[in-house]
Structure formats: C-alpha cells, structure tokens
Amino acid sequence: MISIVIIGNGNVAKHLVNAFLKVDTITVTQINSRKLEDIPKADITILAVSDDAIAAVSAKIRNSFVVHTSGSFSMDDLKNTTNKGVFYMLQTFSKDKEVDFSKVPFCLEAQHKEDYLLLEKLAKSIGKNSYAINSEQRKAIHVAAVFVNNFTNHLYKIGNDICIENKLPFEILQPLIDETAQKIKTLSPKKAQTGPAVRNDKKTIKNHLDLLNNEQQKIYTILTKSIRDSIE
C-alpha cells in the first residue's frame, strides 16, 4: 500500500485524486494548499500547485518525500529539507474533460533510486508509460509541449474567429484537424508539412493576407517565413 497526500485543488489535483481513488493499493488524501498546518504523514507528498507557489508551499512540508508536478520548474525548486522528486504528466488537463491516464506519459525524477522506483510504481498504478527525465530535459519537453498544444490551440482559436467572421461553421475544419494529427504518427512533421508556404505560392499568400486583420497578418507572416526557412 502506497500512501499519498496531494496538495492543491486545481485540475491536475482533481484528476489525480479521482484516478488514485480507483486503485486498491493506493490511499490518497487531498489538502488545500492554503491549509498546511496539519499535513498527514505519507510515502509521497505531491504538490499539484501553481509553479510560483512550489517554493513557498514545499518549504512548509516535513514529510519524507515531496514531489511537484511542474514541467518547467527544476526539482531543486522544491525547498523542503527532505527527499525531493518530480511527478510530471505530459498532458493537458481541463476541468470537465476526463483524462485517460493509460495514454499519459509520466516524466519522473528523484534524488535517490529507491524514491524513483516508488514514483515509477505510483505511475504504473494508473498509467502505462513512464520515463526517467531530468530537470533540463523536462524544461525542453515542456517548451515543445507549449508549441504542439497551447500554440496550436490558439491557432484553432484564430481559425474559429475567421470562420465566425465569414459565417462558416468551425466543424467544417474538424476532418482536416484530425487528419493532420493522424499524419504525424507516421510522417515526421517536416515531411507532413503542406500548404502555400511550402509551395511558395505568393499569390495565394497575398490573397490570404488581404483577408486577415492586422494581428492575424503578423502571425500568418511569421509562420509562413518560419516554414519557408525550414525547407530552404
């Protein structure tokens, strides 16, 4: 039996608690990060708090093994005086969207081998894929994730805005979005790239720019140049 305390009440904390409650070999307690006076002892204390709160919250914890769930912060950003580690899940967490942890990569780090093995056991209790990732590697994968997730989603938002402005349903783009996501499972992103920037179709590019507002034009121009530079 592994005992864990999860500190935090955001999306990550909520989904983790729900997942661990379904595992017979795990006991889990959730605590609000504002109420740290009486933290129960546990094998693993997981900080599922905002990045900016990691140092301050961890400094108040005396439990034997403390980990955070941040992709961009180092293990050394934990300020507890006991053993430290990282339990980072490379996935986007939304409040009302259930997470299939069997498909989530767990990026693990610990100061000591026995602690790493404990984190690995914890990850495998709800998931399938775990990786030994150090703090520098985790920062890199987090930046990469921002490009493929957060920035891509913002581009969906721009596409939706253009559809609304021109009285078009956004769902008409869904098959294209799905095909693009499927294609990079078998092709490298570079080989999968298509469109007017790849073809250097200057007339089409100009026609597109004429349809866009100033902010959209800036983004379109930057991305077009980046694509052109990547193939030349």
Rank of each mutant, 00 (worst) to 15 (best):
N166S: 09
G159S: 15
E109A: 03
G85L: 15
P175Q: 02
F101C: 12
Y116F: 15
F93T: 13
V99K: 07
E136L: 08
E171R: 12
T152K: 04
Y156R: 04
I141P: 00
K95F: 05
S94H: 13
N153G: 09
G85D: 15
F170K: 06
H154W: 06
L168M: 11
M89W: 10
E109I: 02
N134W: 00
L122N: 02
E171M: 09
T180L: 11
D115A: 07
T92L: 09
D96Y: 10
V104E: 12
N149Y: 05
L118H: 01
S125K: 06
G159A: 15
L168K: 04
E120T: 02
H154V: 08
I172R: 11
N160K: 15
T82C: 12
D161N: 14
H154L: 12
C107D: 00
G159L: 10
E109V: 02
K128G: 04
N149W: 10
T92C: 08
V146M: 00
K103V: 04
F147N: 04
C107M: 01
A144S: 09
S102M: 15
N149G: 10
I162T: 08
Y156S: 07
L108Y: 03
Y156W: 12
P169F: 10
F101V: 03
C163W: 08
V146L: 03
C107R: 00
A140R: 08
D100Q: 13
K113R: 02
Q91H: 15
E171V: 12
K157N: 11
G159Y: 08
T92M: 11
I162G: 01
K95H: 13
S94R: 15
K103C: 07
V99T: 13
L90V: 02
